[in-house]
């Protein structure tokens, strides 16, 4: 009985831990990595960009370096009318999402189509516009590099846009402000579909990071919230002070995301607003004070764009 006895223990320990990791990391990794991106996964990647949390392009989580989702109803090249199309604009310097950078994210068929029909290999980070298309013959989604196939440059697409959706920057706000501590993004596969909509499927997440499923639900699931409530005004009131639209809400106020000035350039005085609000709560005034319109490119705009984009 000497120390050599512990060698057997150490070996057994190493073997069991390795075997455990083989079964719980390597095997599931093979399974998960063999799944192709769905159309939803392609849309999410192109909307949210490379990374929504801490990253080189956005170390302070301000929503920098994210693509812009653009809704087009006229052709950016000649201005003629066309069916409503979502284009994903990656301006110069915006890093591409995982599907375009890493192998194995798109899935074999999707990758082959994206390369042959979508010409994604020609995309460069000097500014590219992408579309999500579905191949009719094989019913497979793929990414199209519209800059290569149609000559759509970011500048042309942005100037032809009906409106832009800053959902990529918005997801960063969602992560930074900790929305996901209460609002899950994962309707459960059991009962939740009744109130929160269809649960996500395998392949819906390819290339998304972080997935922010959330685990501790203290508030409604948000995966399909844009389909339930598409009112920008409601969202604005609700983010400014949730108790304006839902008196029993326990959500914090996000009025500080409005920044210093509102859309008209007036200084926003949150304390003064709260004084007026307290009068409204105590019944001294019949109405709460006006909620200021948010200026463009404020953090609240990003966040509302993100939430409304969750269809």
């Amino acid at each position: 009985m000497a120390f050599r006895e512990y060698k057997i223990g150490c070996w057994m320990f190493g073997i069991s831990l390795s075997a455990s990791m083989f079964v719980t990391i390597f095997l599931p990794g093979l399974d998960i990595s063999s799944v192709s991106s769905t159309e939803l996964a392609l849309e999410k990647q192109l909307t949210y960009g490379r990374e929504s949390a801490f990253s080189y392009e956005d170390p302070f989580l301000q929503g920098k370096g994210k693509p812009i989702k653009v809704v087009l109803t006229k052709d950016p090249m000649n201005g003629s009318a066309m069916d409503e199309t979502n284009a994903y604009v990656f301006e110069a310097g915006t890093p591409f999402p995982a599907g375009l950078n890493h192998t194995n994210i798109l899935g074999e068929d999707v990758k082959a189509l994206s390369e042959s029909k979508g010409r994604i290999a020609e995309a460069d980070e000097n500014g590219t516009v992408f579309l999500v298309k579905i191949d009719d013959a094989s019913d497979t989604p793929y990414i199209e590099n519209a800059t290569a196939t149609r000559g759509w440059t970011p500048a042309k697409v942005l100037s032809a846009s009906d409106h832009t959706i800053m959902a990529g920057s918005g997801k960063t706000m969602f992560v930074r402000e900790g929305c996901w501590w209460c609002h899950t993004l994962l309707p459960e596969q059991t009962q939740d579909w009744q109130s929160f909509g269809r649960p996500p499927m395998l392949g819906d997440f390819n290339g998304e990071s972080p997935t922010t499923f959330g685990s501790d639900r203290k508030a409604p699931d948000l995966l399909h919230v844009g389909a339930r409530n598409s009112s920008r005004e409601w969202m604005m009131l609700h983010f400014f002070n949730p108790r304006l639209v839902q008196v029993h809400s326990i959500m914090p106020r996000y009025d500080y995301l409005w920044g210093d000035k509102d859309a008209q350039g007036n200084v926003i005085d949150l304390e003064a607003w709260d004084v007026g609000y307290q009068k409204y709560v105590s019944g001294e005034t019949p109405y709460p004070p006006e909620v200021p319109d948010y200026a463009d490119n404020t953090e609240i705009r990003y966040l509302i764009d993100f939430v409304l984009n969750l269809k």
Binding site: M1, A2, E5, I8, G9, M12, S16
Partner: peptide, 12 residues
């Protein structure tokens, strides 16, 4: 198996 082997082989 692992427990029996290890327990048997470790010193008291």
């Amino acid at each position: 198996f692992a427990v029996i082997i290890v327990v048997k082989r470790l010193p008291h």
